[in-house]
Write a protein that binds this DNA or RNA. Structure first.
Length: 486
RNA sequence: GGGUUGGUAGCUCAAUGGUAGAGCAGUGCCCUUUUAAGGCAUUGGUUGAGGGUUCGAGUCCCUCCCAACCCA
């Protein structure tokens, strides 16, 4: 097969690679002992002290005999100064083969430049890895969203805003674990491959286990296994990991996404709502964005302001709809359909009355709830697996936390009556017996304590907290269509 | 799935249907405290892919691929 000629830029880098080798320099060097990460080295500045640092060259300013270069890693940048007269000949020769993008190890002493920048005066330079491709523009970064998503490493090298979001995401994940563990919740791991995909209504990914000779499914939720652990006697458990749903991809959907589920024995949905409220405020504080979060557009204009100040609002589903569409619940189905037509709402996909009402809720209530609101007294048809409300058996004991016009977290008083649970699951499965997790139903018969449960879609939570416009901006490697062969 | 917008040099972007350009990066030269370093010179293109219209297509038409946004 004919290989296309390398572009000039790639060819030049290959030549430099050869030049280094012919100078006796290994262009893909060995381990290099550093004093710390770039950020740690910056923080440890002490005039004239000896220091070792390594990182990628992200800028090179050649003044003749004096040269400056920036060394960066994901957490920081530091300026290196060297004078060709202060280095041995072979090192100076190697510097001629350096490019922006190469990994370099530096030994030197801390010093402050004329302009006051804390830097390192290099006494030794070691090529650690030659970069064979040019990096994106140092000033404009990567603007092409396709490159950002397909080659996230370039996005992270070039775009500070992206680095910030992912550092925030990491901080959020760490703080969720710390927050829950501090309150006695134990983190557990349950199967991602399940014989019966349960705990939610969604299309699963299907796979096959050869040795066991059985079809399996990637989980759509961990719920039914976490509840087995309530049966086992764990009073407080949580799982923070991936779910998979074989559905559409959009600004708000990635086929694999991160979910927090937590269960608290002997608690209820109200106690869970307090836990979630406290936790999300704590997270906002930990990434220095709360309690008032501003979402900005590309030009930096504030598009939306979310106020997380406590206490958060709590409102009943019916009351919110009545406030948006007065007289709604007095209408019969035909009247409701008529009203939707007047409101220019497309309800062609809705059949049952509760579906029409739910559409009104989504369009006229949910999308407009920007500040946090726990929606309570949700119709039982929408949440088949929760406990019925004592006073109003047409609704269930759950909350749906809405922030930024999106459902961020549902919370339940979990159903623990095994017979009722079977009835509901059978109804949900529409008579398809193979969709019932009989093993789970058997576990419930041994007795599950009453419990509060929550789920939080972490990707959407991160979007809300960081102001990211797309789920792809908060997932390191989002799924895109395979690209045609180059 | 439908609609809209886009895909041009490594990156960021230009280009009435009429010679494909700029900045950065790169290459060469100069410069001992620069930091979007600077000065002078200079290389680099299958304009997403394939058809069509035309004397002539990055530009107009058709098909396809990829992406973003909106809708379902």
């Amino acid at each position: 097969m004919e290989t296309p000629p390398l572009s000039e830029l790639l060819a030049i880098r290959r030549q430099k690679l050869q030049a280094l080798r012919s100078q006796g320099v290994d262009p893909f060097g060995a381990a290099f002992a550093v004093s710390g990460s770039v950020a740690e080295v910056v923080a440890a500045f002490q005039e004239a002290a000896l220091v070792q640092v390594a990182g990628r060259i992200t800028a090179y300013r050649d003044m003749g005999k004096s040269r400056f270069l920036d060394i960066s890693d994901i957490g920081g940048r530091i300026q290196i100064y060297f004078n060709t007269k202060e280095l041995d000949e072979s090192t100076v020769a190697a510097t001629a083969q350096l490019d922006i993008g190469d990994f370099l190890g530096v030994e030197g002493t801390y010093f402050t430049t004329k302009t006051g920048e804390q830097s390192i005066r290099a006494s030794r330079l070691v090529v650690l890895s030659k970069s064979l491709r040019p990096l994106p523009d140092k000033w404009h970064g990567v603007q092409d969203p396709e490159i950002c998503y397909r080659q996230r490493y370039l996005d992270l090298i070039a775009n500070d805003s992206s680095r910030t979001i992912f550092k925030q995401r990491i901080a959020i994940m760490r703080e969720i674990r710390r927050f829950l563990e501090a309150r006695g919740f134990l983190e557990v791991e349950t199967p991602m491959m399940q014989a019966v995909p349960g705990g939610a209504a969604a299309e699963p990914f299907k796979t096959h286990h050869n040795a066991l000779g059985m079809d399996m499914f990637l989980r759509i939720a961990p719920e039914l296994y976490l509840k087995r652990l309530l049966v086992a006697g764990f009073p407080k458990v949580f799982e923070l990991n991936r779910n998979f749903r074989n559905e559409g991809v959009s600004r708000r959907h990635n086929p694999e996404f991160t979910m927090l589920e937590a269960y608290w024995a002997f608690a209820d949905f109200e106690k869970m709502s307090e836990l979630v409220e406290e936790m999300i405020c704590d997270l906002a504080e930990h990434i220095d964005v709360g309690p008032v979060i501003e979402h900005r557009d590309d030009e930096g204009n504030v598009m939306r302001t979310i106020n997380l100040a406590r206490p958060w609002r709590r409102a009943a589903y019916r009351d919110l709809i009545e406030a948006a569409v007065p007289g709604w619940f007095a209408l019969d189905l035909a009247g409701k359909r008529q009203r939707c037509a007047e409101l220019k709402l497309d309800i062609s996909h809705c059949e049952a009355e509760f579906e029409v009402t739910q559409h009104v809720f989504e369009k006229l209530v949910e999308e407009k709830l920007i500040d946090p609101c726990f929606v309570t007294h949700v119709p039982k048809e929408l949440v088949p697996l929760a406990k019925l409300n004592d006073k109003d058996p047409s609704s269930v004991d759950v909350y749906e936390l809405i922030i930024n016009g999106q459902e961020i977290s549902p919370g339940y008083s979990e159903l623990n009556d095994p017979d009722l649970q079977r009835e509901r699951l059978e109804h949900q499965a529409g008579g398809e017996k193979q969709c019932l997790d009989e093993d789970f139903l058997e576990a419930l018969e041994y007795g599950m304590p009453p419990a509060g449960g929550i789920g939080i879609g972490i990707d959407r939570l991160v979007m809300m907290l960081t102001g990211a416009a797309s789920i792809r901006d908060v997932i390191l490697f989002p799924h895109l269509k395979a690209r045609a062969e180059k």
